[in-house]
């Protein structure tokens, strides 16, 4: 059981055995979280700062709760309203923050690569909570844990990821993770929402939803990122729902025991029919939220162990 990372910046640098290590530990935290007494002290004495340069409710809450359950001192910084608006650069913000000696830094930023840049400038462990269109590693890990618990394994599954792949960091992290764990990944969506060069990612690409869903074990729906659309990718929401919205009819092409996932927040009636989302026999959307807290606890626990094992560095 090894986890050799200093930061969690993406799925790309992780080895399959590191992913398994993290998921195994997360399983233990699921059990802890289901008890009346939920506290653990593994992060006590450590400071966790959540820096969100982009709006987020659920991811930030999930990280905050994860830190608090492990006994860290958690601080939230709403970066939208702060010095960034006053013209301070990201690197300067990082250096100021570094001077306050945080141990864990959770960062979300609207630009791809911004979290990597920040990680180069600070001494603490950095967790990527989503950077631009690049990666969202904890989401992919919580999806993996959800799949593993529902299906009993995380390999040799047929998994369809459907919708706006192009603007989705969730899709990128999931493709990388599911690929590393030796699954067959299909991408389903209109060609205008497929990133270029995607055929080189070892995936099968479908623009017909029914074909794409045929016999899959897992259906992962993505949010249609309306705020990211800077110009006509699809003709209209209603045409999108007609062709790519998940309803009972389209889902019937998947395996009988296929599960339905969604990273949230959902647009009911745009990418997913409300009754499917609420169907407790198919939908694992609520479990995903639960797994999110456990996975983030596991990630911070592992990074903190590495942090404590490292000699204290001289300040930059």
């Amino acid at each position: 059981m090894r986890f050799d990372q200093r930061h969690l910046l993406g799925i790309e640098p992780l080895r399959p055995d590191e992913i398994t290590t993290l998921l195994d530990l997360a399983d233990k935290y699921v059990t802890l979280n289901r008890q009346r007494e939920k506290r653990s002290g593994v992060l006590s004495g450590l400071t966790q700062i959540n820096m969100f340069f982009e709006n987020s409710t659920r991811t930030q809450a999930s990280f905050e709760l994860a830190g608090k359950r492990l006994g860290a001192d958690v601080m939230n910084m709403a970066m939208q309203a702060s010095s960034i608006k006053k013209g301070e650069t990201l690197v300067d913000t990082a250096l100021s923050l570094n001077a306050m000696h945080p141990d864990l830094l959770v960062v979300r930023h609207p630009h791809s690569g911004a979290v990597d840049l920040l990680a180069q400038k600070v001494n603490c462990a950095v967790l990527n909570a989503g950077d631009g269109k690049h990666e969202h590693p904890t989401q992919a890990l919580l999806d993996a844990l959800t799949i593993r618990r529902a299906k009993g394994r995380l390999h040799r599954l047929n998994i369809a990821i459907c919708g706006d792949i192009s603007h989705s960091r969730v899709a990128r992290s999931n493709i990388l993770l599911l690929h590393k764990m030796e699954n067959r990944v299909r991408l389903v969506g209109p060609p205008t929402l497929m990133p270029s060069g995607i055929e080189h990612f070892g995936v099968e690409v479908y623009d017909d939803m029914r074909e794409g869903l045929k016999d899959v074990d897992v259906v992962m729906m993505l949010r249609l990122q309306k705020e990211r659309m800077d110009g006509g990718f699809i003709p209209s929401e209603r045409e999108y729902y007609h062709r790519y919205g998940l309803d009972a009819e389209k889902l019937s092409y998947a395996a009988d025991d296929a599960i339905v996932m969604h990273p949230g927040p959902m647009n009911r009636g745009v990418e997913i029919d409300g009754t499917i989302a609420d169907d407790i026999n198919r939908s694992v959307i609520q479990e995903q939220v639960e797994m999110g807290v456990a996975v983030r606890m596991a990630a911070m626990d592992l990074l903190a162990r590495n942090l404590r094992a490292r000699p204290k560095e001289v300040m930059a």
């Binding site: 790309e12 791809s112 690569g113 950077d131 631009g132 269109k133 690049h134 990666e135 960091r169 990128r172 990133p195 270029s196 060069g197 995607i198 080189h200 990612f201 800077d230």
Partner: peptide, 20 residues
Amino acid sequence: KGAAATSGKFASLRGLPGVS
């Protein structure tokens, strides 16, 4: 417009806006 990389596998992997 807005491109920071050449579109293709690398730009998609890094999540960078690409130009064909």
